[in-house]
Write a protein that binds this DNA or RNA. Structure first.
Lengths: 180, 180
DNA sequence: CGCCCCATGTAATAAGTTACATGATTTT
DNA sequence: AAAATCATGTAACTTATTACATGGGGCG
Protein backbone atom coordinates (compact mmCIF):
# COMPACT_ATOMS: atom_id res chain seq x y z
CA UNK A 1 0.00 0.00 0.00
CA UNK A 2 2.66 2.48 1.00
CA UNK A 3 4.47 2.08 -2.27
CA UNK A 4 1.36 3.37 -4.02
CA UNK A 5 1.25 6.31 -1.68
CA UNK A 6 4.88 7.15 -2.29
CA UNK A 7 4.32 7.05 -6.06
CA UNK A 8 1.17 9.13 -5.86
CA UNK A 9 3.03 11.60 -3.66
CA UNK A 10 5.86 11.96 -6.16
CA UNK A 11 3.47 12.38 -9.08
CA UNK A 12 1.61 14.95 -7.06
CA UNK A 13 4.62 17.03 -6.02
CA UNK A 14 6.79 16.73 -9.10
CA UNK A 15 4.22 16.29 -11.84
CA UNK A 16 3.81 13.49 -14.40
CA UNK A 17 6.64 11.13 -15.18
CA UNK A 18 7.56 7.71 -16.49
CA UNK A 19 8.46 4.67 -14.45
CA UNK A 20 12.07 5.47 -15.05
CA UNK A 21 11.62 9.04 -13.84
CA UNK A 22 9.92 7.81 -10.72
CA UNK A 23 12.64 5.27 -10.04
CA UNK A 24 15.16 8.11 -10.32
CA UNK A 25 13.08 10.33 -8.09
CA UNK A 26 13.07 7.56 -5.53
CA UNK A 27 16.83 7.41 -5.52
CA UNK A 28 17.21 11.13 -5.33
CA UNK A 29 14.52 12.35 -3.04
CA UNK A 30 12.46 9.81 -1.19
CA UNK A 31 14.96 7.02 -0.79
CA UNK A 32 15.84 7.69 2.83
CA UNK A 33 12.14 7.55 3.64
CA UNK A 34 10.87 4.70 1.51
CA UNK A 35 12.94 2.50 -0.73
CA UNK A 36 11.81 0.81 -3.94
CA UNK A 37 13.56 -0.44 -7.03
CA UNK A 38 12.38 -0.28 -10.62
CA UNK A 39 11.30 -3.92 -10.61
CA UNK A 40 8.73 -3.03 -8.03
CA UNK A 41 7.75 0.31 -9.52
CA UNK A 42 6.87 -0.75 -13.07
CA UNK A 43 4.32 -3.43 -12.16
CA UNK A 44 2.82 -1.25 -9.46
CA UNK A 45 2.25 1.62 -11.89
CA UNK A 46 0.49 -0.78 -14.24
CA UNK A 47 -1.81 -1.92 -11.45
CA UNK A 48 -2.45 1.66 -10.37
CA UNK A 49 -3.43 2.53 -13.93
CA UNK A 50 -5.81 -0.44 -13.96
CA UNK A 51 -7.30 0.88 -10.71
CA UNK A 52 -7.74 4.37 -12.12
CA UNK A 53 -5.32 6.11 -9.75
CA UNK A 54 -3.04 7.20 -12.58
CA UNK A 55 -3.42 7.53 -16.34
CA UNK A 56 -1.00 7.08 -19.18
CA UNK A 57 -0.79 10.68 -20.26
CA UNK A 58 1.54 10.14 -23.17
CA UNK A 59 3.46 7.40 -24.93
CA UNK A 60 6.98 8.35 -25.97
CA UNK A 61 9.59 6.65 -28.07
CA UNK A 62 10.36 3.01 -27.12
CA UNK A 63 7.61 1.94 -24.72
CA UNK A 64 8.00 5.04 -22.54
CA UNK A 65 4.75 5.88 -20.80
CA UNK A 66 4.24 9.11 -18.94
CA UNK A 67 1.96 8.64 -15.97
CA UNK A 68 -0.12 11.37 -14.38
CA UNK A 69 -2.11 11.25 -11.18
CA UNK A 70 -5.89 11.27 -11.57
CA UNK A 71 -8.49 12.87 -9.32
CA UNK A 72 -9.19 9.47 -7.89
CA UNK A 73 -5.48 9.11 -7.17
CA UNK A 74 -5.39 12.46 -5.41
CA UNK A 75 -8.32 11.45 -3.28
CA UNK A 76 -6.66 8.20 -2.33
CA UNK A 77 -3.51 10.05 -1.37
CA UNK A 78 -5.42 12.59 0.65
CA UNK A 79 -7.33 9.86 2.42
CA UNK A 80 -4.13 8.07 3.37
CA UNK A 81 -2.51 11.24 4.65
CA UNK A 82 -5.45 12.30 6.80
CA UNK A 83 -6.91 8.92 7.80
CA UNK A 84 -5.11 7.74 10.88
CA UNK A 85 -3.37 4.45 10.61
CA UNK A 86 -2.75 2.04 13.43
CA UNK A 87 0.96 1.84 14.14
CA UNK A 88 2.54 -0.73 11.82
CA UNK A 89 4.15 -3.72 13.53
CA UNK A 90 7.68 -2.97 14.65
CA UNK A 91 10.48 -4.70 12.81
CA UNK A 92 13.79 -3.04 13.47
CA UNK A 93 17.11 -4.79 13.03
CA UNK A 94 18.78 -2.16 15.16
CA UNK A 95 16.41 -2.73 18.06
CA UNK A 96 16.77 -6.49 17.66
CA UNK A 97 20.50 -6.07 17.99
CA UNK A 98 19.92 -3.96 21.09
CA UNK A 99 17.77 -6.68 22.53
CA UNK A 100 20.31 -9.43 21.98
CA UNK A 101 23.43 -7.47 22.82
CA UNK A 102 23.86 -8.95 26.33
CA UNK A 103 24.39 -12.37 24.75
CA UNK A 104 27.84 -11.14 23.83
CA UNK A 105 30.53 -10.67 26.39
CA UNK A 106 31.20 -7.03 27.27
CA UNK A 107 34.26 -6.56 25.11
CA UNK A 108 32.52 -7.92 22.05
CA UNK A 109 29.39 -5.90 22.70
CA UNK A 110 31.39 -2.71 22.98
CA UNK A 111 33.19 -3.56 19.77
CA UNK A 112 29.89 -3.97 17.94
CA UNK A 113 28.63 -0.71 19.35
CA UNK A 114 31.69 1.19 18.25
CA UNK A 115 31.27 -0.08 14.68
CA UNK A 116 27.68 1.04 14.83
CA UNK A 117 28.74 4.39 16.19
CA UNK A 118 31.01 4.96 13.22
CA UNK A 119 28.29 4.03 10.73
CA UNK A 120 25.69 6.16 12.44
CA UNK A 121 28.03 9.12 12.58
CA UNK A 122 28.68 8.84 8.86
CA UNK A 123 24.97 8.66 8.16
CA UNK A 124 24.32 11.69 10.31
CA UNK A 125 26.93 13.74 8.46
CA UNK A 126 25.48 12.64 5.14
CA UNK A 127 21.99 13.75 6.11
CA UNK A 128 23.25 17.03 7.52
CA UNK A 129 25.08 17.80 4.30
CA UNK A 130 22.00 16.94 2.31
CA UNK A 131 20.01 19.37 4.42
CA UNK A 132 22.54 22.14 3.97
CA UNK A 133 22.37 21.54 0.23
CA UNK A 134 18.61 21.59 0.15
CA UNK A 135 18.43 24.73 2.23
CA UNK A 136 20.80 26.62 -0.02
CA UNK A 137 19.16 25.31 -3.21
CA UNK A 138 15.89 26.60 -1.83
CA UNK A 139 13.97 23.73 -3.38
CA UNK A 140 10.38 24.60 -2.53
CA UNK A 141 8.71 21.32 -1.50
CA UNK A 142 9.26 21.47 2.24
CA UNK A 143 8.38 17.80 2.59
CA UNK A 144 11.93 16.79 1.94
CA UNK A 145 13.05 19.07 4.75
CA UNK A 146 10.62 17.76 7.33
CA UNK A 147 11.55 14.19 6.49
CA UNK A 148 15.25 15.04 6.56
CA UNK A 149 14.79 16.67 9.91
CA UNK A 150 13.15 13.50 11.12
CA UNK A 151 16.05 11.42 9.83
CA UNK A 152 18.62 13.67 11.46
CA UNK A 153 16.88 13.62 14.81
CA UNK A 154 16.61 9.84 14.63
CA UNK A 155 20.29 9.46 13.81
CA UNK A 156 21.26 11.71 16.73
CA UNK A 157 19.08 9.71 19.07
CA UNK A 158 20.60 6.50 17.79
CA UNK A 159 24.06 7.82 18.52
CA UNK A 160 23.08 8.85 22.02
CA UNK A 161 21.69 5.40 22.67
CA UNK A 162 24.82 3.72 21.37
CA UNK A 163 27.04 5.78 23.63
CA UNK A 164 24.88 5.39 26.71
CA UNK A 165 24.65 1.64 26.19
CA UNK A 166 28.38 1.25 25.65
CA UNK A 167 29.02 3.22 28.84
CA UNK A 168 26.59 1.07 30.78
CA UNK A 169 28.16 -2.14 29.56
CA UNK A 170 31.64 -0.87 30.33
CA UNK A 171 30.59 0.21 33.83
CA UNK A 172 29.10 -3.21 34.55
CA UNK A 173 32.10 -5.05 33.20
CA UNK A 174 34.48 -3.27 35.58
CA UNK A 175 32.38 -2.35 38.62
CA UNK A 176 33.99 0.37 40.67
CA UNK A 177 37.21 -0.26 38.82
CA UNK A 178 39.56 1.75 36.64
CA UNK A 179 41.53 -0.80 34.60
CA UNK A 180 40.56 -2.58 31.36
CA UNK B 1 16.90 -13.90 8.19
CA UNK B 2 16.16 -11.71 11.17
CA UNK B 3 13.26 -13.89 12.24
CA UNK B 4 15.73 -16.73 12.65
CA UNK B 5 17.95 -14.53 14.72
CA UNK B 6 15.11 -13.45 16.95
CA UNK B 7 14.11 -17.07 17.51
CA UNK B 8 17.67 -18.16 18.20
CA UNK B 9 18.01 -15.25 20.59
CA UNK B 10 14.93 -16.25 22.53
CA UNK B 11 15.98 -19.89 22.71
CA UNK B 12 19.38 -18.74 23.86
CA UNK B 13 18.18 -16.39 26.61
CA UNK B 14 15.10 -18.23 27.83
CA UNK B 15 16.02 -21.83 27.14
CA UNK B 16 14.19 -24.48 25.08
CA UNK B 17 10.56 -24.07 24.15
CA UNK B 18 7.84 -25.02 21.72
CA UNK B 19 6.54 -22.97 18.81
CA UNK B 20 3.70 -21.90 21.01
CA UNK B 21 6.04 -20.83 23.80
CA UNK B 22 8.08 -18.83 21.35
CA UNK B 23 5.02 -17.16 19.89
CA UNK B 24 4.06 -16.15 23.44
CA UNK B 25 7.55 -14.97 24.18
CA UNK B 26 7.36 -12.83 21.07
CA UNK B 27 4.20 -11.17 22.30
CA UNK B 28 5.55 -10.63 25.75
CA UNK B 29 9.14 -9.68 25.35
CA UNK B 30 10.43 -9.04 21.87
CA UNK B 31 7.31 -7.77 20.20
CA UNK B 32 8.22 -4.08 20.26
CA UNK B 33 11.52 -4.97 18.59
CA UNK B 34 10.55 -7.58 16.05
CA UNK B 35 7.06 -8.82 15.34
CA UNK B 36 6.06 -12.28 14.13
CA UNK B 37 2.92 -14.36 14.38
CA UNK B 38 2.64 -18.09 14.92
CA UNK B 39 1.96 -18.75 11.25
CA UNK B 40 5.43 -17.50 10.52
CA UNK B 41 7.10 -19.07 13.52
CA UNK B 42 6.05 -22.70 13.06
CA UNK B 43 7.34 -23.15 9.51
CA UNK B 44 10.51 -21.23 10.31
CA UNK B 45 11.31 -23.51 13.24
CA UNK B 46 10.86 -26.52 10.98
CA UNK B 47 13.30 -25.05 8.46
CA UNK B 48 15.75 -24.20 11.19
CA UNK B 49 15.60 -27.77 12.45
CA UNK B 50 16.29 -28.98 8.91
CA UNK B 51 19.28 -26.63 8.79
CA UNK B 52 20.61 -27.92 12.11
CA UNK B 53 20.27 -24.64 14.02
CA UNK B 54 17.82 -26.14 16.48
CA UNK B 55 16.86 -29.68 17.50
CA UNK B 56 13.63 -31.21 18.63
CA UNK B 57 14.59 -31.89 22.20
CA UNK B 58 11.34 -33.54 23.23
CA UNK B 59 7.93 -34.43 21.82
CA UNK B 60 5.04 -33.82 24.16
CA UNK B 61 1.37 -34.67 24.00
CA UNK B 62 -0.42 -33.63 20.76
CA UNK B 63 2.26 -32.65 18.29
CA UNK B 64 4.08 -30.42 20.78
CA UNK B 65 7.78 -30.22 19.99
CA UNK B 66 10.27 -28.62 22.31
CA UNK B 67 13.05 -26.95 20.37
CA UNK B 68 16.51 -26.27 21.71
CA UNK B 69 19.29 -24.25 20.14
CA UNK B 70 22.29 -26.24 18.86
CA UNK B 71 25.95 -25.27 18.83
CA UNK B 72 25.58 -24.46 15.18
CA UNK B 73 22.64 -22.21 16.05
CA UNK B 74 24.67 -20.42 18.69
CA UNK B 75 27.44 -19.85 16.21
CA UNK B 76 25.02 -18.45 13.66
CA UNK B 77 23.59 -16.10 16.27
CA UNK B 78 27.01 -15.00 17.39
CA UNK B 79 28.05 -14.39 13.80
CA UNK B 80 25.02 -12.25 13.15
CA UNK B 81 25.54 -10.21 16.29
CA UNK B 82 29.19 -9.48 15.65
CA UNK B 83 29.34 -9.42 11.85
CA UNK B 84 28.50 -5.93 10.72
CA UNK B 85 25.53 -5.57 8.48
CA UNK B 86 25.02 -2.88 5.88
CA UNK B 87 22.13 -0.66 6.93
CA UNK B 88 18.89 -2.18 5.68
CA UNK B 89 16.88 -0.11 3.18
CA UNK B 90 14.71 2.45 4.91
CA UNK B 91 10.97 1.91 4.82
CA UNK B 92 9.22 4.02 7.39
CA UNK B 93 5.57 4.95 7.15
CA UNK B 94 6.12 7.74 9.64
CA UNK B 95 8.87 9.30 7.58
CA UNK B 96 6.81 8.89 4.43
CA UNK B 97 4.05 10.83 6.11
CA UNK B 98 6.58 13.48 7.08
CA UNK B 99 7.70 13.70 3.49
CA UNK B 100 4.23 14.16 2.09
CA UNK B 101 2.83 16.36 4.81
CA UNK B 102 3.12 19.63 2.83
CA UNK B 103 0.62 18.26 0.32
CA UNK B 104 -2.03 18.99 2.92
CA UNK B 105 -3.10 22.47 3.74
CA UNK B 106 -1.73 23.75 7.06
CA UNK B 107 -4.86 23.15 9.13
CA UNK B 108 -5.13 19.56 7.95
CA UNK B 109 -1.45 18.91 8.47
CA UNK B 110 -1.61 20.20 12.02
CA UNK B 111 -4.64 18.03 12.65
CA UNK B 112 -2.78 14.95 11.47
CA UNK B 113 0.20 15.85 13.62
CA UNK B 114 -1.91 16.27 16.71
CA UNK B 115 -3.42 12.81 16.24
CA UNK B 116 0.07 11.46 15.89
CA UNK B 117 1.15 13.30 18.98
CA UNK B 118 -1.57 11.64 21.03
CA UNK B 119 -0.64 8.18 19.75
CA UNK B 120 3.04 8.71 20.30
CA UNK B 121 2.45 10.01 23.82
CA UNK B 122 0.42 6.93 24.66
CA UNK B 123 3.14 4.69 23.29
CA UNK B 124 5.78 6.51 25.27
CA UNK B 125 3.83 6.07 28.51
CA UNK B 126 3.33 2.42 27.75
CA UNK B 127 7.03 1.84 27.23
CA UNK B 128 7.93 3.84 30.33
CA UNK B 129 5.59 1.76 32.45
CA UNK B 130 7.01 -1.40 30.99
CA UNK B 131 10.47 -0.23 31.94
CA UNK B 132 9.41 0.61 35.49
CA UNK B 133 7.93 -2.85 35.75
CA UNK B 134 11.03 -4.56 34.42
CA UNK B 135 13.29 -2.59 36.71
CA UNK B 136 11.31 -3.50 39.80
CA UNK B 137 10.94 -7.13 38.74
CA UNK B 138 14.72 -7.22 38.41
CA UNK B 139 14.51 -9.63 35.48
CA UNK B 140 18.13 -10.36 34.72
CA UNK B 141 18.45 -10.32 30.93
CA UNK B 142 19.45 -6.71 30.40
CA UNK B 143 18.67 -6.96 26.69
CA UNK B 144 15.07 -6.07 27.24
CA UNK B 145 16.19 -2.95 29.04
CA UNK B 146 18.58 -1.75 26.36
CA UNK B 147 15.95 -2.30 23.69
CA UNK B 148 13.30 -0.59 25.81
CA UNK B 149 15.62 2.32 26.32
CA UNK B 150 16.05 2.51 22.58
CA UNK B 151 12.29 2.51 22.07
CA UNK B 152 11.75 5.20 24.68
CA UNK B 153 14.40 7.45 23.21
CA UNK B 154 12.92 6.98 19.75
CA UNK B 155 9.43 7.80 20.94
CA UNK B 156 10.67 10.96 22.66
CA UNK B 157 12.47 12.03 19.51
CA UNK B 158 9.36 11.37 17.49
CA UNK B 159 7.36 13.58 19.80
CA UNK B 160 9.89 16.38 19.54
CA UNK B 161 9.79 16.17 15.77
CA UNK B 162 6.00 16.25 15.72
CA UNK B 163 5.90 19.35 17.88
CA UNK B 164 8.64 21.18 16.01
CA UNK B 165 7.01 20.42 12.67
CA UNK B 166 3.59 21.51 13.82
CA UNK B 167 5.09 24.76 15.10
CA UNK B 168 6.86 25.35 11.80
CA UNK B 169 3.72 24.76 9.79
CA UNK B 170 1.72 27.02 12.06
CA UNK B 171 4.32 29.77 11.82
CA UNK B 172 4.34 29.60 8.03
CA UNK B 173 0.56 29.60 7.81
CA UNK B 174 0.29 32.84 9.74
CA UNK B 175 3.52 34.72 9.06
CA UNK B 176 4.15 37.42 11.65
CA UNK B 177 0.61 37.04 12.83
CA UNK B 178 -1.10 36.17 16.10
CA UNK B 179 -4.61 35.04 15.18
CA UNK B 180 -5.80 31.60 14.06
C1' DC C 1 -21.43 -34.08 26.73
C1' DG C 2 -20.48 -29.54 25.25
C1' DC C 3 -17.65 -25.50 25.51
C1' DC C 4 -13.51 -23.10 25.70
C1' DC C 5 -8.76 -22.57 25.49
C1' DC C 6 -4.37 -24.77 24.25
C1' DA C 7 -1.53 -25.89 20.40
C1' DT C 8 -0.13 -26.79 15.81
C1' DG C 9 -0.31 -26.30 11.46
C1' DT C 10 -1.57 -25.05 6.07
C1' DA C 11 -3.19 -22.03 2.16
C1' DA C 12 -3.69 -18.03 -0.36
C1' DT C 13 -2.20 -13.67 -1.04
C1' DA C 14 0.69 -9.55 -0.80
C1' DA C 15 5.06 -7.24 -0.69
C1' DG C 16 9.87 -7.01 -1.62
C1' DT C 17 14.59 -8.65 -3.60
C1' DT C 18 17.73 -10.25 -6.99
C1' DA C 19 18.74 -11.63 -11.26
C1' DC C 20 17.81 -11.91 -15.99
C1' DA C 21 16.44 -10.14 -20.61
C1' DT C 22 15.93 -6.82 -24.25
C1' DG C 23 16.24 -3.14 -27.24
C1' DA C 24 16.65 2.01 -28.32
C1' DT C 25 19.38 6.21 -28.17
C1' DT C 26 23.24 8.97 -27.41
C1' DT C 27 28.11 9.53 -27.11
C1' DT C 28 32.81 8.67 -28.53
C1' DA D 1 30.69 1.00 -35.20
C1' DA D 2 31.31 0.17 -30.40
C1' DA D 3 30.33 1.49 -25.78
C1' DA D 4 27.61 3.55 -22.44
C1' DT D 5 23.43 4.48 -20.60
C1' DC D 6 18.46 5.08 -21.09
C1' DA D 7 14.29 2.58 -20.39
C1' DT D 8 11.16 -1.09 -19.75
C1' DG D 9 9.95 -5.11 -18.36
C1' DT D 10 9.68 -10.45 -16.44
C1' DA D 11 10.89 -14.49 -13.44
C1' DA D 12 12.14 -16.84 -9.44
C1' DC D 13 12.52 -16.56 -4.82
C1' DT D 14 11.97 -14.91 0.00
C1' DT D 15 9.39 -12.78 3.58
C1' DA D 16 5.16 -11.43 5.85
C1' DT D 17 -0.12 -11.21 6.47
C1' DT D 18 -4.66 -13.06 6.86
C1' DA D 19 -7.64 -16.55 7.02
C1' DC D 20 -8.76 -21.19 7.43
C1' DA D 21 -8.52 -25.93 9.50
C1' DT D 22 -7.99 -29.29 13.08
C1' DG D 23 -7.94 -31.67 17.20
C1' DG D 24 -6.57 -32.47 22.32
C1' DG D 25 -7.58 -31.58 27.21
C1' DG D 26 -9.74 -29.59 31.04
C1' DC D 27 -13.86 -28.06 33.17
C1' DG D 28 -18.69 -27.44 34.27
Amino acid sequence: MSLRIALLGLLSTSGPGSGYDLAKAFERSINYVWHAGHSQIYPELAKMAADGLVTVEAQGTRGRKTYAITDQGSEELHRWLTGHRPAPPVRSEGALLAFLLPLLDPAEAIGVLSTLEAEMTARLHELEQLRALKRSAQVPPRGGLYALDFGIRSARTGLEWIRATADDIAARATPGDAGA
